[in-house]
Write a protein that binds this DNA or RNA. Structure first.
Lengths: 343, 343
DNA sequence: TTGTACGCGTTATCAT
DNA sequence: ATGATAACGCGTACAA
């Protein structure tokens, strides 16, 4: 069934059918009824490909993330997809992994699919070496690009992010103010936001006149799912004689490992070891005690990102950057006087 | 830049350009080089919409799941997407939620997008009332439908699943054989696989001549993310005087709640309470002790599902059902003599 | 080996 | 208010 068949059955031209289909006001009500009746009878829906060819859009938007099964990214994809669909857009999903080349080819593929826009979810799409971000710049020359939790100055690139620097800085400062001077900063990503968090930690130390020791900034190389690995990693540090009375982690999963470590070593939480995670994910409530964590309001971020996206596609002038604040949610692994987000 | 522009620049016809583009052998090497050179120079890629219109496919497949941020479904989406992409297909993702009407409209939308096939991930797409599965039957009349973890007899519907009945039955039997006669079965879904698991539990009880008490089969109505809610729920049962020395849960999240409950009540795990979850997800390792859980080999399932999908699209004759076995992975919340999967 | 011409199913621009 | 017809850009019979 195509538009010709419908037009014949309804005794009108294809132009009229098209008008009915697209809600044009220039159709006599009786004609509209007649056509609609035929459309309904045959359950006709216009061919999306032909429509796409004519309009040069199929109303679809690409979502690229490293790994949609990652707790945090999964949430992001979910929120973004839902919001986009509410606005009449389809979502083409690609998991690019963390390798540079794969990220680049994922983006190319997406553009060749002729999506209206592309969303890069996760800070890992921006690297410190600006040359390696060139492929995003090139993409932005063709379609608008939206970054979640990453920062890039480039025409047609729009960033929606949480101020990870400030959030981490405040959390670290709160820990210090509570009397802990040896905070272990634990991270597992060199991404843009990974570095911002690290800087936040360092900044807090400087502000409080505490020497930033290299040993207290530990990078965990293991799998993003290996909580036990984190536990072992910390036990290793412990055995090497490294002393720390707080763990500030760039991800909840690392914090969960820290809690396990403390239990294994018989260290009291939060008495002898405070633990703060990041993302305020399901992991924080699964752990015992529940993990204090920085919430970066992902749902709000995603809603805002999609709002920006839709507006840009509608030709509106939009700010290239929107920055939200994070917030420390205290649970069982800290006992800090005030909420870390109130400066 | 379109194919006409390229053909002019290369001094050939569009047919030749098309042949080069699609790797036809009937092109003189020198001509091919000449055309390729122009294509590369302009970075030309064929218009996907026009291609789609002509070929009646854009090589895209719809993935529908209730909630892509759910720990289990997120994994499923990830595995499926990766495998499909390896085979040259794009994935259009939709989260339908758990409401019947929304599931139906999600499927309709997908079909109108003219995807080559649609994958329904999660057992919640098949309901016990067969009338409510009619929309899937209708969809299958148009494109092949692939179900992950659900069972349906219908032409053009292909099911890839784990034998949840058997896995649960074996786990329950193992618990009983270890001396526990009051196993609390905890579940939160009336989906197809949810019921199969419940039946597995009941079957094990029957096999071991244990009366199946309605009180020992508890449905948790709260949020899928509220581990604390589960904990409170169990505390409530405890206060009401319900006695149970094992919890068999249809999902890891419920099991995590059970572990919390035991700790709160000072109940020894696994001594006085054994706990078994389902899915063997990240939650099992976050908990302390780590949670024994039934692994239904999701990655294998997804790989198989995609294999079937690709084969069907290639016109091969494929079995409508493929059923794998689950496997009990013992961790800290049980101490059963042998692996539950070896009967 | 290469080129011509048509079909794919829309939307949009003209007339009428 | 309605109809005829030209794009849209590609793949592909068919012809050469």
């Amino acid at each position: 069934m195509n538009i010709y068949d419908i037009s014949k059955q309804a005794g009108v031209s294809i132009a009229t059918v098209s008008r009915v289909l697209n809600g044009s006001p220039n159709v006599k009500p009786s004609t509209r009824r007649k056509v609609m009746e035929v459309i309904d009878r045959y359950g006709y829906t216009p061919n999306a490909f032909a429509r796409g060819l004519g309009l040069d859009t199929m109303n679809s938007i690409g979502i690229i993330c490293a790994d949609s099964s990652d707790l945090y990214l999964a949430k992001a994809v979910y929120y973004i997809e839902g919001n986009l669909r509410k606005n009449g857009y389809n979502c083409i999903l690609t998991c690019s992994g963390y390798e540079h080349g794969d990220k680049e080819s994922a983006l190319t593929l997406m553009i060749n699919q002729r999506v209206d826009a592309v969303i890069l979810a996760g800070s890992n799409y921006i690297e410190t070496d600006t040359d390696r971000n060139l492929y995003i710049r090139n993409a932005a020359a063709q379609i608008p690009v939206f970054l979640l939790n990453a920062d890039m100055d480039c025409p047609n690139v729009f960033c929606t992010m949480c101020d990870d620097f400030k959030a981490t800085q405040e959390a670290a400062a709160a820990l210090i103010d509570s009397g802990v001077t040896d905070i272990l900063y634990l991270y597992n990503s060199h991404s843009y936001s990974g570095l911002r968090k690290l800087e936040g930690y360092q900044s807090a130390c400087h502000m409080r006149n505490i020497a930033v020791s290299g040993e207290l900034m530990q990078f965990y190389e293991g799998s993003r799912e290996d909580i036990d690995g984190v536990c072992r990693f910390l036990c290793g540090l412990h055995e090497q004689g490294l002393s720390f009375h707080a763990v500030l982690a760039s991800e909840d999963m690392l914090a969960a490992g820290a809690v396990k470590y403390a239990k294994l070593q018989g260290i009291d939480i939060p008495g002898d070891l405070a633990v703060i995670g990041y993302n305020n994910s399901l992991l924080t409530t699964c752990s015992d005690p529940e993990i204090s964590s920085i919430d970066n309001h992902l749902e709000t971020l995603c809603a805002q990102l999609v709002r920006t996206c839709i507006s840009v596609l509608n030709g509106e002038d939009m700010p290239p950057k929107v920055i939200y604040s994070g917030e420390l949610i205290q649970k069982g692994t800290t006992r800090l006087p005030v909420s870390g987000s109130q400066k």
